[in-house]
């Protein structure tokens, strides 16, 4: 009993000491974790800001490509044109008239802007590019840029082999036939033939967000002049919609039921998403001018006659004849970029 009397206070002391040290360590660990979490939260704004800036590049690419490009539909609906839609710039390079216009449009006519909008159907006419619509009601092209499982019109990032037959008995012996399209569509499984179904799969893509994707970046483009655009670059959860679009019952930009369903039909949630977003406004101007006129493939500069021109791939030719390093692009250039220091009236 005497021994017990002596041991009891010792155990209590140890317990107090261990508990105290543990509490101290626990508080340090918690404060450390809280600090890390705070850092992560504060870093989130920097990430969003960086992604919003990246959207400026994406939007300029968008403006450039939509100035001239179109897509074929191998199985167009009855009554629609079968010609390849190829346009001639936001300001038509043929006559300087506001475009884009396809081959069939006469000079001075802006009746049908042949620009696909952001619907999955590539031949659809994009009303957002129609300058006849008053600016206050002119639609914008909204482009959510979250990481999709398979974007619309996705192609495989690889070369497609078109092997030349080396079998002498083969009818195709030695012929460089391009039997397989290059690039290949990223439709799985690859279509055996062009059918409406495979085309629609290819065109629609699989827009399911990848779980590893970051917070979604997006941009909106409003055409406010023949070749000038108001670009809104953002990063957050709204996918480029605005609260104004949510509240609009109908008309330009009004969100559909499907749109609202993406946000759980919760206006308060959408409002919070919008409030926490990063948004940057820019104006840019497109130009039909393309690559520099410099040449690197003419014999002139090494002393020969000036009309001798080497092939573009003549890098290995004698006398250091070099190939043209700046081939022209097909989509024009961006002349200037201006970050707007205020929120514009229309965007």
């Amino acid at each position: 009993m005497i021994t017990n009397r002596c041991a009891a206070p010792r155990r209590g002391t140890v317990l107090i000491l261990v508990a105290g040290i543990s509490a101290l360590l626990a508080s340090l660990a918690v404060s450390f974790l809280v600090r890390m979490r705070t850092d992560a939260e504060e870093s989130d704004r920097s990430v969003r800001l960086a992604q919003a800036h990246l959207m400026l590049v994406a939007s300029c690419n968008f403006i450039q490509e939509r100035s001239r490009l179109g897509w074929d539909d191998p199985n167009p609906p009855a009554g629609t044109p079968t010609t390849h839609v190829e346009c001639f710039g936001w300001v038509d390079i043929r006559d300087g008239v506001s475009g884009p216009r396809d081959q069939t449009q006469g000079p001075g006519d802006f009746a049908v802007p042949a620009v696909p909008d952001d619907t999955p159907t590539p031949m659809a006419v994009g009303t957002w590019a129609d300058l006849r619509t008053p600016l206050a009601t002119r639609p914008v092209s909204r482009q959510p840029m979250y990481v999709m499982r398979r974007p619309p019109f996705a192609v495989l990032p690889k070369a497609t082999p078109n092997a030349i037959s080396t079998t002498t008995d083969d009818l195709d012996f030695g012929k460089p036939l391009a039997k397989h399209c290059d690039p290949e569509p990223a439709v799985k499984p690859l279509p055996a033939a062009d059918t409406p179904a495979t085309w629609s799969d290819y065109a629609a893509g699989d827009k399911t967000p990848l779980p590893s994707g970051q917070v979604g970046a997006w941009f909106r483009v409003l055409r406010d002049g023949p070749a000038t655009f108001v670009v809104t670059c953002g990063c957050g959860g709204t996918m480029g919609f605005r609260l104004r679009d949510w509240d609009a019952v109908s008309g330009t930009g009004a969100m559909t039921l499907e749109d609202k369903a993406m946000f759980g039909n919760d206006r308060d949630l959408f409002s919070q998403l919008e409030a926490s977003e990063v948004r940057l406004w820019y104006r840019v101007e497109w130009s039909a001018n393309v690559a520099a006129a410099d040449y690197q493939c003419l014999q002139n500069e090494i002393g020969g006659d000036h009309w001798v021109q080497w092939p573009l791939n003549a890098s290995a030719a004698p006398n250091n004849v070099r190939s043209q390093p700046h081939p022209t692009n097909m989509v024009g250039t961006i002349r200037w970029v201006q970050r707007l220091t205020n929120e514009p009236t229309y965007w």
């Binding site: 300001v91 023949p226 003419l298």
Partner: peptide, 18 residues
């Protein structure tokens, strides 16, 4: 806007003229 449709903005003759 310097449209390419304006011939003042482009030159398509011999760039190697010396």
């Amino acid at each position: 806007v310097w449209p390419v449709a304006d011939p003042r903005t482009w030159f398509r003759n011999n760039m190697a003229e010396r």
